[in-house]
Design a protein around this nucleic acid. Sequence first.
DNA 1: CTGATTATACTCAACAAGAGCATAATGAGG
DNA 2: CCTCATTATGCTCTTGTTGAGTATAATCAG
Lengths: 319, 319
Amino acid sequence: MQDKTIQPTSQAQRNNQSHAVSADLIAVVIAVTDGEPRVLTIGEAQALPSGPFELGHRSLQSGLRAWVERQTGHPLGYIEQLYTFADRDRTGDERVISISYLGLTREEQADRSAAHSWRGWYDYFPWEDHRAGVPSILRDILVPRLSAWADEAEDLGVRRDRRQRVAYAFDLDDRDWNEELVLQRYELLYEATLVAEATRGRDGGSPSVPGRPMIADHRRILATGIARLRTKIKYRPVVFELMPPAFTLLQLQRTVEALAGRLVHKQNFRRLIEQQDLVEETGETVSETRGPPAKRFRFRQTVLAERTVAGTKLPLSRA
Amino acid sequence: MQDKTIQPTSQAQRNNQSHAVSADLIAVVIAVTDGEPRVLTIGEAQALPSGPFELGHRSLQSGLRAWVERQTGHPLGYIEQLYTFADRDRTGDERVISISYLGLTREEQADRSAAHSWRGWYDYFPWEDHRAGVPSILRDILVPRLSAWADEAEDLGVRRDRRQRVAYAFDLDDRDWNEELVLQRYELLYEATLVAEATRGRDGGSPSVPGRPMIADHRRILATGIARLRTKIKYRPVVFELMPPAFTLLQLQRTVEALAGRLVHKQNFRRLIEQQDLVEETGETVSETRGPPAKRFRFRQTVLAERTVAGTKLPLSRA
DNA sequence: CTGATTATACTCAACAAGAGCATAATGAGG
DNA sequence: CCTCATTATGCTCTTGTTGAGTATAATCAG
């Protein structure tokens, strides 16, 4: 930051004592083990690892790594920023800014002493797992309750709006299920006070829907992380952050399915992976289950450099 | 925030006096006028509107809107968060967190009294405009200098790494030019100390490359905003935030081209727009230029509700 | 009146994506 | 040892989607 240059923010920085805030770093750390996506939690599996951004931290990222490691003993590999928000419902005249991150690892070398646990993320969002078909909770509980909520609105416009949003976010028929809308769905449930977090501090209200709650807005942050990951696996080779050094294509497929919450077409999945040149054979084969032995693959590290690819959708022209 | 629930962040919040930081809100506000993408600036066109997040602000977004309106007289419509980072190079023992946003508007009803200006964004990134072919600055200045920088590395590995990154980010041949890599390109230039911001506070160094600099890291934030917008227009109908209520398809195309910095195939562009059902005819026709009169269209507001679509890339299966 | 300029309709080839069939190895269980 | 469910892997076929042009008809500038 230079001195001779104009600095519009300078008035601000000079007297920032009056604008003091504190910043919390919050981590959504994901691993996939035994075909189940899990999230790293602390405190009765109701909270995500988190802590304040301190003077000693070199950067936001390193502060986050430090906190996660201190609280769970787990070192982080890949991380990316999710979202920043200012919490409204804190008390005191001090504002808290929360900066959330998504981290991907493998559930390993964890420090046993630290008080953490890996929880299947579908414990928190049971309606998001469509690998075995549309979950019955969805049909039998969520949709009826959401419909009721939509219909209870006085105003016709509101009613129609709610119905439309419910239909869009929860559209059944499996074909149209959009697994990326994790956050929208959670927020709808929150708005309809169908999750425990929404009824806290209020009088009873309708009993909440299945799914483990978390403190504060941690479950919403988790939803944000899941949504981001489900989107990202489609255009960036991030799944490999969750895989061991060598793996079979079926293992890879199961991991993707675990994340997406839906099944994929095996043959086409292979075609996709291969044509993108993402992996190479290690030369070994393994026969873990029945069936012929499967080839083992490893991720081609080079693609990280090349294939930061971004997909075009514009009808470009030469000339 | 409840009291009976476990709160891992609580230790932090209790004694957060020691972790006090201040938060700055920074806006990249974009409009497209006369086929030129412009950014809203203050202070000699070297700074983005910004200001501290204050106690009086209801939320980060509203704080940002307040600052932009105060500094430029321009009310904001669509905004979305870009990125949050903690500045290293500030002085004092107080940390500053910067939260940046992207805003889209039309260059209109600006308060004349406020000291702001709209600047073409290619003033800051002249190498990003490929509408008239590969800019000569790129071929004649940037690439040679970057190559020199790559080759000046002692270590062979570093040299190869630099060459690879330069090739990837700046790949000429037009076909392979990836307009989304705005940030990567700026960061490479920064790393190679080819932009003014990188040589400040140091002794001379190599003279910087064409392109107007900004204070602090504002130009990097602008690059982030441009990159985000260039990516986003491909999968979400955000261009319409920049369009007047009614427009011809050619105007729409010119706007997209201005943003992407490259030309698109007219017929295919129309096919794309129409098949996605994004617009509807107003019924009027206008003949602004030569050629037959063009139909005027308006954006179909409904798609905002429906078409929050996300594109699948997984080979899903039924079953 | 001429011609450059634009709107708009179509065509075609190349390729990507969805869906399913076919064949060949295996290990589990009798 | 035999049978069969289970899996790896190769291929086909159909249907979109995308890139690239050709063709035709309105206009306005000069």
